[in-house]
Design a protein around this nucleic acid. Structure first.
Lengths: 154, 154
DNA sequence: TATTGTTATACTCTATAACTATA
DNA sequence: TATAGTTATAGAGTATAACAATA
């Protein structure tokens, strides 16, 4: 009988994860943290966080949309979006314009500065994206995306 | 020419994600959030968070290990682990025992209460795990795990 | 009444510096 | 000197309640 009790390595080297290592959830988290870390580093030169890039992309895709709509698609609470837009607006990347028939809401658009920065950020984003796709190896991206979508709909 | 500008749905329905929807990173995050949410709900009856379960599993797999080792394998900062172990110990699920040749460190073990609770929690965890595997559909779990591992090593 | 954006606030997670007691 | 655990603290990220202006 092996007395593993008092002869354990102080660091985690060789210590078992107790089954967690073959769990989708655990590896999903490690992968997500790694991807966000890599993207954050890629966006560093533009002083953008992952969320900032997402917001800019959504505004670019649908100019004039309300803050509410961004929160809906990106799953950001409305109160938290206020600060994000405040910062982007302070940097003159985004403009809060008037909405013709609703004076409560803002029509969000990229400024030309915002468009210019996003153009560059998208290059870095694409490069990051290629790294992630490379990591998929023999797994087809479409199958990965489909699986992740189904998991997200749990 | 279509003037999409001022005719935008206030809610996010039908609003484009600007390419994010076909991005591994974005879906990875949605999937991870969904999995943790589902697991947290599954662990609710045991008053355990996802991290608590992970810690219990690691201690069970290697009884007597140091706090340091848990932090290493689960990527939890040592200061943050203190509170987690404090709470588990206060609930008499875990014991901080002495280490024979090092009076700075603790040998962590499950109490019998901890073993009993973990036994039940593992059933719920397994059921949750099956739901996640089902969501993989035609994608073989091993291929998913391998891909996630490579992404995590970015 | 309901909704948009806002303010204030709180809670969780994560991160860092510095201390203690040992090694 | 270095290490294990600890304390204190700070920073993200995320969440809810309530308000003003407007619909």
């Amino acid at each position: 009988m092996i007395d593993a009790g008092e002869r354990v390595a102080p660091t985690g080297e060789g210590v078992s994860l107790g089954g967690l290592e073959t769990t989708v959830g655990f590896l999903l988290r490690l992968a997500q943290v790694a991807v966000f870390k890599d993207l954050l580093a890629a966006l560093k030169p533009f002083d953008l966080r992952v969320t900032d890039l997402s917001v800019l992309l959504v505004i670019e895709a649908t100019p004039g949309l309300h803050q509410r709509a961004i929160g809906d698609v990106l799953r950001i609470q409305r109160p938290n979006l206020v600060t994000i837009i405040d910062q982007l607006e302070a940097r003159r990347l985004v403009r809060r314009g008037p909405v013709a028939d609703d004076r409560r809401a803002y029509a969000l658009r990229l400024t030309s500065e915002g468009e210019a920065l996003l153009r560059e950020a998208k290059v870095a984003h694409a490069e990051h994206g290629r790294k992630v796709l490379d990591a998929l190896g023999d797994l087809e991206p479409e199958r990965m995306l489909a699986a992740l979508e189904r998991i997200a709909a749990l």
